[in-house]
Structures are given as C-alpha cells and as structure tokens.
C-alpha cells in the first residue's frame, strides 16, 4: 500500500465485489470457537455437500462470533433482495432444511429462526 488512493480504490473494488455477491444467495456460518465447539464444522460440511448434491450456486461465507454463543451453531440465510435471517441451535438435519425450505423455496423455517437482520 503506497498511497491513500490505492486503499480507496481497493475498497471500492471489494465493495462492488461484495455487492455483486449479494445478487446471489448466501449462507453465512458462525465459525468462532463457540460455533465450532457447538458443531459448526459438521454443519458446514453438511451444507456444502447438500449444495453440491442439489447443484445450487450459493456463496458460503464464514464469520466470527456474533455474541449469541448460547444459540450456536448459527447460520444466516440471505437471498438476493431479501432480509438476512439468522437460524440457531442447528443440527446437521436442521441445516439441510434451511437449504430445502428457505434457500430453494423461499420459506423461512420458523421453528429454527432466531431473528432477521434489518439493515
């Protein structure tokens, strides 16, 4: 990084990249120590296999702890143009439901939901 302009350009570049990504469906999984110890790794594998089997083009992102350690593992589903919805206390089975019900059919899985995230 040699100048302020260089940083600003990079910021614009990555911001537009992220905006582009938002045009696709996203799964965001909490991968802090709290998430992992509650089973986030298994959930992640399950999500990835499921996506592959169903041949879905979805961006899977990892993130840190959002504070709700009590409700880990947490997975957020974000469909293009819609509110991001957080699900918690998930089992591997639950995670698959997020894909079949919310991701594919746009139905929020009410029994697993924690909250929605309004911008």
């Amino acid at each position: 990084m040699r100048s302020v302009a260089e940083l600003d350009n990079l910021q614009k570049e990555v911001q537009s990249k992220l905006e582009k990504q938002a045009e696709q469906a996203q799964l965001i999984i909490g991968m802090g120590t709290c998430g992992i110890s509650a089973g986030a790794k298994d959930i992640l594998t399950a999500l990835e296999t499921e996506l592959e089997e169903r041949e879905l083009e979805v961006i899977v992102k990892k993130t840190g702890c959002i504070g709700l350690c009590e409700k880990e593992p947490l997975v957020d589903v974000k469909l293009p143009g819609e509110t991001r919805v957080t699900y918690g206390n998930l089992s591997v089975e639950d995670a698959r439901r997020l894909i079949s019900e919310h991701l594919e059919n746009g139905n929020i899985v009410r029994d697993l939901v924690v909250a929605k995230m309004e911008e």
């Binding site: 709700l68 469909l79 509110t83 746009g106 909250a115 929605k116 995230m117 309004e118």
Partner: peptide, 21 residues
C-alpha cells in the same frame, strides 16, 4: 420478500441486542 417474514423478530427486537451498542 420471503413469504412468511412477518412476526419474526428482528435483531433490534431481541432482548439480547436491544440495549447493546
């Protein structure tokens, strides 16, 4: 908008987040 979004609390409504900064 997802079909059944109403009645789902938003983060700001959760006790846990309400008074956080």
């Amino acid at each position: 908008m997802a079909t059944n979004e109403e009645n789902i609390p938003s983060y700001q409504d959760l006790d846990f987040y309400k008074s956080q900064r």
